[in-house]
Simulated assay, not measured.
Amino acid sequence: MTRFAGRLAEVRLAVMMLTRLPVGHLQDPAPTLAAARWAYPLVGLIVGLIAWGIHSAIMCIGASATLAAVVTLGSVILTTGAMHQDGLADFADGIWGGHDRTRRLEIMRDSAIGSYGVLALILCCAVWISALSQLAGQAGILSFLAIGVLSRIAMTICSATLPLARTDGLGVLSSGGDSNWMLWAGLAFIAVVLLGWQGLVVLAVVALVATLVAGIARRRIGGQTGDVLGAVQFLSETSAWATLAIMAG
């Protein structure tokens, strides 16, 4: 396998991992999730493009800003298979529902959703929808692409820097491998440029939110799991939209 073919396989694996989009089957030897981690932020471009297309189409046929925001979030959830929302729910249940590290990890692994998870999802989705509704026609393709990338850079950096909270699971499979800091920094710079001067504020807020979530995870469960990474992505994305809405208002 050539170097280009290997990189392409890693991108396809990243798409398979973070979305439900059909990208065919990988040929052996298939790359590992750790090797494909560098491409996670690129998936944000695909998800952002789809979300922008749905949002624009709904707005063009006369839907209200609120209805367009609800349908757009639904499209994001369908595209990603709700994995980040599921991660947020499990994260909230485990972090605040367990009395010690072992119990918290047990709760996070449980497929059932508790009151903390339900409330976290309701509040986060409400902020996401309200922010995009407030922006209405001001939310263009550049915003969708930039936020899609920045939120997944935050998730990827947490994957590269946080210790593992357990010895199995998606967090373990995505850990290790090369850390492509220059690539991620370059993508973050481009995302900020796409957003203009507001991009610096959005970047700061996303970094702050990701740092807070990572800090909570490290203190409460010892580090990262797949649920922690999903929570980082969705909370970062939501905070980015909320920041743009506040500055636009």
Score class of each variant (00 low, 15 high):
M1K: 05
M1P: 11
T2E: 11
T2N: 15
R3K: 11
L8E: 03
R12V: 12
R12S: 14
A14N: 07
M17I: 04
V23Q: 12
H25P: 04
L26Y: 04
L26H: 02
Q27E: 12
D28T: 09
D28V: 08
D28Y: 07
P29L: 03
P41K: 02
V43D: 05
L45Q: 00
H55V: 00
A57K: 02
M59E: 08
G62M: 03
T66S: 15
A69S: 14
V76I: 14
V76G: 06
I77M: 15
L78D: 04
D86Q: 11
L88S: 08
A92F: 04
G94K: 06
G94I: 13
I95P: 00
W96I: 04
G97I: 00
R104H: 05
L105N: 02
I107Y: 01
I113N: 02
Y116W: 13
C125I: 02
A126S: 13
W128P: 05
I129R: 12
S133F: 04
Q134E: 14
A136H: 13
A146K: 01
A146T: 01
A146F: 09
T156C: 13
I157E: 13
L162A: 15
A165R: 04
G171K: 01
L173Q: 13
D178R: 13
S179W: 01
N180R: 10
N180H: 13
G186C: 03
A188C: 13
V192K: 06
V192H: 05
L195N: 08
L195I: 11
V201Q: 04
A204Q: 00
V205F: 09
V206G: 05
L208S: 11
A214E: 05
G215F: 10
A217C: 12
R218S: 14
R219Y: 08
R220Y: 14
D227E: 11
V228T: 12
F234H: 12
F234L: 15
E237K: 04
E237D: 05
W241F: 05
T243Y: 12
T243H: 08
L244F: 08
